[in-house]
Amino acid sequence: MSEAVGTRRQFGEGPLSRVAALIYSLLVVGLLLLLTTAPGVVALLLLERDASNLPLFAACALPLGPALSAALYALHRHRPDLTDLHPARAFWRGYRANVRGVLAIWLPWLLWLTVVAANLTYFAAAAVPDWWRVPLVLVAVVATLWGVNALVITSLFRFRVRDVARLALYFLVRDPVVALGNAGVLLAAVLVTAFASEAVLGLLGSPLVLALLRTCRPMISKIEKEFTA
């Protein structure tokens, strides 16, 4: 009996098993990401790339928030034991648990970014000085990085919406290294979309979510130590 247990542990916990477990979890979570965001992605691919469609682009991105939250939840709870993998179960548990809280953050965030993007797009028609572009771009960048922090926090912890908003802003200032790491992940996503397509970005969804978890690890650890009992 002890030999059987030892063999199981060796099989489930070796280096190759850990890599295989991670690849399996990434594949499953990636497929579920594609499934849950498919309506928005299909509609987005059919839309013409025109500034007048900005509100429709935002609507297409609405399913992305809960899906990313579920992926963050599932990959955060990934265990490298090949004999005990349930990424799909964790994904759907995270989706059900977080959908309301995430939408309370995601929807206003999308609306705000849409307003900023519309202002930048129709900047010339507003007849304002060109230097106003700089603060608008800075607002968009800060709002985006704040939104990433808020998404990670609300996906992994149980806080009120206003507390999530405050913590996201607090760690944006306290841990600029995390913000820089998140900016790098977002830049990679933008480059993939620009030089390939939204479909290719969807295929790389789970590795990008995993990268986001890695860059946010300092923030997650500090929240666990300082803000949870």
Rank of each mutant, 00 (worst) to 15 (best):
I153Q: 07
L136V: 06
A127Y: 09
L113A: 12
Y170A: 07
A165H: 13
R158Y: 07
A61D: 11
D130H: 10
P66M: 03
A165C: 10
L136K: 04
L75R: 05
Y73M: 00
D84A: 13
L169T: 09
A70Q: 07
V139G: 00
L46T: 07
R100L: 09
P80V: 08
A143D: 06
P176W: 04
G65M: 10
A124I: 05
R93C: 04
L62H: 01
F159K: 02
D130C: 00
A88I: 08
L103F: 05
A125P: 00
T121W: 15
R49P: 09
R174S: 07
D163F: 05
D81H: 13
A118N: 06
P135Q: 05
P87Q: 09
D81T: 02
A140M: 12
A51K: 12
V102L: 02
P80G: 02
P63I: 14
F171M: 00
A104H: 04
P87M: 08
L167R: 08
P129D: 09
G147N: 08
T144Q: 12
A74Q: 09
A59D: 04
T83F: 13
Y170R: 14
A117C: 01
L44W: 12
R174C: 05
W92Y: 11
S69L: 05
L64P: 02
G40H: 09
V173M: 06
E48A: 14
D130M: 11
V173L: 12
V152F: 04
L172Y: 13
V152I: 15
R96D: 02
F57Y: 15
W132P: 01
F171L: 08
T154N: 06
R133M: 09
D50A: 15
G101K: 08
A61K: 04
V42Y: 14
L85T: 01
R93K: 09
A117W: 13
F91S: 01
R93L: 15
A168F: 05
N149Q: 11
A118L: 15
P108F: 11
V137E: 09
P108N: 05
R162F: 06
H78F: 15
L113S: 13
R100G: 07
V42G: 00
F91N: 10
G94M: 02
L56K: 06
A126G: 00
A140S: 10
R160D: 11
L56S: 10
T83Q: 11
L172Q: 11
C60D: 05
L44Y: 12
F91I: 03
V161W: 10
R77V: 02
V137I: 14
S155T: 10
T83K: 07
V177A: 15
I153W: 11
W112K: 03
L44K: 00
L156F: 05
L45M: 13
L113H: 13
A127I: 04
